[in-house]
Amino acid sequence: MSKSSKYDPGEPKTMYTMKYLVKRVLLYVLTLFLAITINFIVPRLIPGNPIEARLAALYRLGVHIGGEEFVAKYSKLFALDQPMYVQFFLYLSNLIQGNMGFSILYFPASVMDILMRGLPWTIGLLSVTVIMSFAGGLVLGAFMGWTNREGKVSRWTSFVFTIFMLLSRFPFFLLGMILVYVFTYTLFLFPYGGGVDPQAIPGTIEYIVSILQHATLPALSIVLAQLGGWAIEARGLMVNVLGEDYLFLAKAKGLKERYIFRQYAMKNTTLPILTDLVIALGSIASGAILVEIVFSYPGIGSLLYMSVMQLDYPMIQAVSLLVVFGVTTAALLIDLVYPFLDPRVGEK
């Protein structure tokens, strides 16, 4: 960025206008609010005390947990005997304090405690895979678009393109299943289930190796499935950029190919695709949750699966809110950084 400002002396640019900032933050708040409201209303649509209804459902399945004490504690925490609006404000204020009630399954433990156990695994898996696949796909796709700019498409490019197209249509979890079958069941190359060998001692080299071994396949299934999508998109954008006049001018100026690729073509390919990353975050997170379930990776996804199996409704709700919160916050952050990368956005 400092490089680009070298070429336009004059007054420093204001990166955001107030309008952009307010609009974006407003969107964030509204989205969160909608998600929270849905989370609040849906269980209360069923007549009667929502917690008793849940417990009754469990009881029919033959699970006896908590009982009187649980209902009493829950009713007190969420003021279930008060009018709706009181309940709602209490719900909000509890949420702000990070209090989402108790898990039915692990009763004395709060939902938040249990979530915190899974969260590091999920965040680790997600952040690494998103960055790897996004950066990798972007470079690959842009390069593919760049190399066939004179209308020559090598057979190699076509082949890679077809593979990418196929892979990008695989839901992450399907790819995960295939990877488990090939690498765990057939080749015995990677361990299956869990995030780390329970016998490994934390802090040792073996512990880290074990973590990496357990994470390889889940990560690979997310990266492989995503790489293709980003590559295809980057290629499309690159092809569009190649038709632009400024590229023609750059060539006419006698700039080196490599420089044109990096400074002109790549930059203008990256910027629009970054906004698509914001949009894709939600589905990537959802996909990662399903991958965790397939691999019984100890993150949020596996917690969710257990909760669904056991009808642990407070846990399901907490996972839902956590995912919404994580995704919308990440999206907000990218959108707030974006005007620094592309000054045209904030100015409008």
Partner: peptide, 24 residues
């Protein structure tokens, strides 16, 4: 546009699973 933006930002699976879990 605003409503559209909200629905784009919300991760749909998170909301769907809440509703599906309650409806049973």
């Amino acid at each position: 546009s605003l409503v559209t933006e909200i629905f784009i930002t919300i991760p749909s699976l998170a909301i769907l699973l809440i509703v599906a879990a309650v409806i049973g």
